[in-house]
Design a protein around this nucleic acid. Structure first.
Lengths: 166, 166
DNA sequence: GTTGAAAAATTCAAATT
DNA sequence: AATTTGAATTTTTCAAC
């Protein structure tokens, strides 16, 4: 599925679109140094090959009234594949849970949650998350402030790496 | 700065653009039930008022060769505002660190990191992060798999809340 | 990958409710 | 005050080269 390897122009396209996903194709083409039609063909190919999963407006939770962000560390009682999958499916159904990552080490999952207020989160925590089948332990940490929130992938690391290989 | 309150159409616009940030304005207008010009004015207003911070292509780290994702819990030796700010500034400079959140509780910060491979991450961990001034403890957890990665904000929670208030 | 042209979208000003 | 209409400009997206 990941097609053939990317060249410099493809990586520049990805980097530019990660930075500004609403850039017009002519602007993008000019930035990567080719004309518009092949640029658009490349973008479509990158989408089809799965390099670009989609485009999203970056909506500010705080401005919209989501005052509370929480990381929750979850441990399960049993960790068979069926148990893990069942918990992941629940997470996908919970709107307050925005991200769910399975981890190695002491804790089984880390969840990133948002909530309009503490009360809403507490209700979710006690009535949904902690009450869910097979959930053995939940430890939560409130986000005091966000110091960095960069999208996706560091293209500079990729470039360094390719330069080293060449 | 957050201007006046949002109406149903504004929230629908935000929800649609969070879902598909490259949707054309005419498509967006048709979905929210107004014509294109006022729809574009509303989008511009939402951008200027800070509800929309930007637009980003969602680039898949794995497909691009970033095989490793890690959460790092960092504790500092001293937590004065100057100490906290200094560490946050370092995080902004580290490309491998994509997110940095200050937390309450035992640990001071949680970092979300990506890396092309374990070796690159180990080098970063030992030579940069653990070696940084004032860093007292670092505990890392590898992401085994990602079960959910929803963008931004759950608009259904917002709607429920408004319905309850009305 | 480039050029050129048709179709579509953006974006503005004026008119409308 | 905000939306619709209508029109000029720009962009998208085909061809064919």
């Amino acid at each position: 599925m990941p097609g053939q390897r990317l060249d410099d122009i493809d990586r520049k396209i990805l980097s530019e679109l990660q930075d500004d996903g609403r850039m017009t194709n002519v602007e993008l083409a000019s930035r990567v140094g080719i004309s518009a039609p092949p640029c658009l063909r490349r973008v479509r190919a990158l989408e089809e090959q799965g390099y670009i999963r989609g485009y999203h407006a970056d909506v500010d939770p705080r401005t919209l009234g989501f005052e509370v962000q929480v990381f929750a560390m979850v441990g399960l009682a049993k960790q068979s594949e069926a148990d893990l999958s069942a918990f992941e499916a629940r997470c996908r159904d919970w709107s307050l849970v925005r991200e769910c990552h399975m981890l190695n080490g002491e804790v089984d999952f880390i969840l990133k949650c948002v909530s309009p207020d503490l009360r809403t989160f507490q209700t979710f925590l006690t009535e949904q998350l902690t009450a869910a089948p097979n959930v053995a332990s939940v430890k939560t940490s409130l986000v005091i402030r966000q110091a960095k929130d960069a999208p996706g992938v560091p293209f500079d690391v990729l470039e360094e790496r390719l330069a080293r290989q060449a």
